[in-house]
Protein backbone atom coordinates (compact mmCIF):
# COMPACT_ATOMS: atom_id res chain seq x y z
CA UNK A 1 0.00 0.00 0.00
CA UNK A 2 1.21 3.47 -0.86
CA UNK A 3 0.94 6.50 1.40
CA UNK A 4 -1.25 8.19 -1.24
CA UNK A 5 -3.73 5.29 -1.09
CA UNK A 6 -3.91 5.59 2.68
CA UNK A 7 -4.54 9.33 2.38
CA UNK A 8 -7.36 8.76 -0.08
CA UNK A 9 -8.99 5.91 1.77
CA UNK A 10 -9.16 7.68 5.15
CA UNK A 11 -9.36 11.26 3.88
CA UNK A 12 -6.19 12.17 5.72
CA UNK A 13 -5.02 15.74 5.65
CA UNK A 14 -1.66 16.22 3.95
CA UNK A 15 0.11 18.96 5.91
CA UNK A 16 3.40 18.74 4.00
CA UNK A 17 5.92 16.39 2.41
CA UNK A 18 3.86 15.60 -0.72
CA UNK A 19 7.09 14.45 -2.41
CA UNK A 20 6.86 11.23 -0.40
CA UNK A 21 3.23 10.31 -1.14
CA UNK A 22 4.32 7.46 -3.38
CA UNK A 23 6.32 5.86 -0.53
CA UNK A 24 5.41 2.21 -0.06
CA UNK A 25 4.17 1.29 3.45
CA UNK A 26 5.65 -1.83 5.04
CA UNK A 27 3.97 -1.53 8.42
CA UNK A 28 3.14 0.83 11.22
CA UNK A 29 4.36 1.89 14.62
CA UNK A 30 2.45 3.64 17.40
CA UNK A 31 4.24 5.51 20.18
CA UNK A 32 4.55 8.97 21.67
CA UNK A 33 7.92 8.23 23.24
CA UNK A 34 10.56 9.34 20.79
CA UNK A 35 13.31 7.04 22.01
CA UNK A 36 10.94 4.12 21.68
CA UNK A 37 10.33 4.99 18.05
CA UNK A 38 14.04 5.59 17.55
CA UNK A 39 14.87 2.19 18.96
CA UNK A 40 12.01 0.15 17.53
CA UNK A 41 10.37 1.55 14.37
CA UNK A 42 11.55 0.11 11.08
CA UNK A 43 12.13 1.55 7.64
CA UNK A 44 9.03 2.36 5.55
CA UNK A 45 6.66 2.17 8.50
CA UNK A 46 3.96 4.74 9.17
CA UNK A 47 4.29 6.35 12.59
CA UNK A 48 1.08 7.32 14.39
CA UNK A 49 1.58 9.87 17.18
CA UNK A 50 0.23 12.89 19.02
CA UNK A 51 3.60 14.64 19.21
CA UNK A 52 3.63 17.68 16.94
CA UNK A 53 7.13 19.19 17.32
CA UNK A 54 9.87 19.07 14.73
CA UNK A 55 11.89 16.27 16.34
CA UNK A 56 9.16 13.97 15.07
CA UNK A 57 10.26 14.68 11.50
CA UNK A 58 13.93 14.38 12.45
CA UNK A 59 13.25 10.88 13.70
CA UNK A 60 11.06 10.03 10.70
CA UNK A 61 13.96 11.02 8.46
CA UNK A 62 16.66 9.23 10.45
CA UNK A 63 14.56 6.05 10.49
CA UNK A 64 13.46 6.34 6.82
CA UNK A 65 9.79 6.14 7.77
CA UNK A 66 7.12 6.22 5.05
CA UNK A 67 4.94 8.89 6.71
CA UNK A 68 3.80 10.35 10.03
CA UNK A 69 0.13 10.59 11.03
CA UNK A 70 -0.93 13.08 13.70
CA UNK A 71 -4.11 12.00 15.46
CA UNK A 72 -7.11 13.74 17.05
CA UNK A 73 -7.00 16.69 14.68
CA UNK A 74 -3.69 17.94 16.12
CA UNK A 75 -1.86 20.53 14.05
CA UNK A 76 1.90 20.41 13.50
CA UNK A 77 4.19 23.25 14.60
CA UNK A 78 5.50 25.51 11.85
CA UNK A 79 9.03 24.10 12.07
CA UNK A 80 7.62 20.58 11.89
CA UNK A 81 5.98 21.46 8.58
CA UNK A 82 9.21 22.90 7.30
CA UNK A 83 11.13 19.80 8.30
CA UNK A 84 8.55 17.58 6.57
CA UNK A 85 9.00 19.58 3.35
CA UNK A 86 12.79 19.48 3.60
CA UNK A 87 12.90 15.74 4.24
CA UNK A 88 10.15 14.91 1.74
CA UNK A 89 8.35 12.71 4.26
CA UNK A 90 4.57 13.13 4.31
CA UNK A 91 3.12 14.63 7.48
CA UNK A 92 -0.53 13.60 7.64
CA UNK A 93 -3.42 14.31 9.94
CA UNK A 94 -6.65 12.66 11.00
CA UNK A 95 -9.44 13.48 13.41
CA UNK A 96 -9.45 9.83 14.47
CA UNK A 97 -7.81 8.80 17.72
CA UNK A 98 -4.72 6.61 17.78
CA UNK A 99 -6.64 3.39 18.51
CA UNK A 100 -8.99 3.80 15.58
CA UNK A 101 -6.36 4.93 13.08
CA UNK A 102 -3.95 2.17 14.06
CA UNK A 103 -6.70 -0.43 13.87
CA UNK A 104 -7.66 0.58 10.35
CA UNK A 105 -4.06 0.64 9.14
CA UNK A 106 -3.38 -2.70 10.77
CA UNK A 107 -6.39 -4.30 9.11
CA UNK A 108 -5.36 -2.90 5.72
CA UNK A 109 -1.79 -4.10 5.96
CA UNK A 110 -2.65 -7.49 7.41
CA UNK A 111 -5.05 -8.09 4.54
CA UNK A 112 -2.66 -7.01 1.79
Amino acid sequence: MKVSELVKKYELKVFAGEQGLENEISGGYVSDLLSDVMGTAAENEVWITLQTHQNVMAIASLKDLAAVILVKGLEPNEDTLERSREEGIPLLGTTMGTFEMAGKLYADLAGS
Binding site: D32, L33, L34, S35, D36, N55
Partner: peptide
Protein backbone atom coordinates in the same frame (compact mmCIF):
# COMPACT_ATOMS: atom_id res chain seq x y z
CA UNK B 1 6.10 16.12 27.55
CA UNK B 2 7.96 16.26 24.25
CA UNK B 3 8.19 12.48 24.38
CA UNK B 4 11.83 12.46 25.38
CA UNK B 5 13.22 11.47 28.75
CA UNK B 6 11.60 8.06 28.95
CA UNK B 7 14.81 6.53 30.24
CA UNK B 8 15.61 4.71 27.02
CA UNK B 9 18.44 6.85 25.66
CA UNK B 10 21.53 5.25 27.14
CA UNK B 11 20.15 1.73 26.75
CA UNK B 12 19.39 2.48 23.10
CA UNK B 13 23.00 3.64 22.70
CA UNK B 14 24.33 0.51 24.42
CA UNK B 15 22.19 -1.74 22.24
CA UNK B 16 23.34 -0.15 19.00
Amino acid sequence: EMGFGAGMGLSNIKKN
